[in-house]
Amino acid sequence: MMREYKNKENVQKKSYYTDRYWVAPRVPTFDPATDEEFNSVVASLKGKFSINEAYIQLKHLVIYINPEDNKAVLQYLHEELGYGRLMEMSAIDWLAKSGEFEIFYEMLNVDKAKRIRVKCYIKEDQAIESVQDIFRLANFAEREMFDMFGVKVNNHPFMKRILMPDDWQGYPLRKTYPLQGDEAASWYEVDKIFGKEARDIIGPEIRDSAMIDRYDSERFARLGHEVAFGSDVSEVKTDQGYQEDGGVFLVRKLHKDDTKTITDRDR
């Protein structure tokens, strides 16, 4: 009999309850004309580049551009309009929906304390231009984007994996990558250190947080009152002491009666 079809396009956890008729509300968006600073930004950008969409959401101006323009737009924002700081950039995985990544850049204007989010969509194998000559922050952020999603970036001086080991297979933050890692990931450290032969000796990872071993109650029943193996439990009295009963040579033995409890914290 056939196994159940599991859609592998998005293996992240999904809500177990879905309501077909429920329409999710949206965070309110506003027209850029409501804020004069943002209005002037949009107007000057529209003159030079093609803006697909622009709106204000939660005090951010969000602009959608074409991916080929990204460096030019960011340079224009920096030099002409004063948005000189790139604070954050990353990608969002929409491969299941449309086969695209959505790249976003967060810009900050220090003099006016205003923020803009610049977004563009690229296909999975399309490459974008690196902005690290204008904003050195992109040096690290684009490396992380490549490491986590596999987004190709052109003209980057040091495009290597940054957070994962150099010989890691797979792009962790994609929706097709499971949270607990695939086969290559789960044996990575064993293969690296001991070799493939040790897989059976060390055993697979125990990822089940609710696992109960059958020895648990036997081995942890006398927690705090352990006795030596093989001795008769009813006769041995355990004193949960920090040192052996007879004390250690030259080391002062801590007697519980000699201690003093301090209650005033502000002494």
């Binding site: 509300p25 949206r26 965070v27 959401q57 939660l58 967060e106 923020r115 989010r117």
Partner: peptide, 10 residues
């Protein structure tokens, strides 16, 4: 279930 949208609050 929060509303659909994005937030970036520094």
């Amino acid at each position: 279930r929060p509303p659909v949208g994005e937030a970036y609050v520094p």
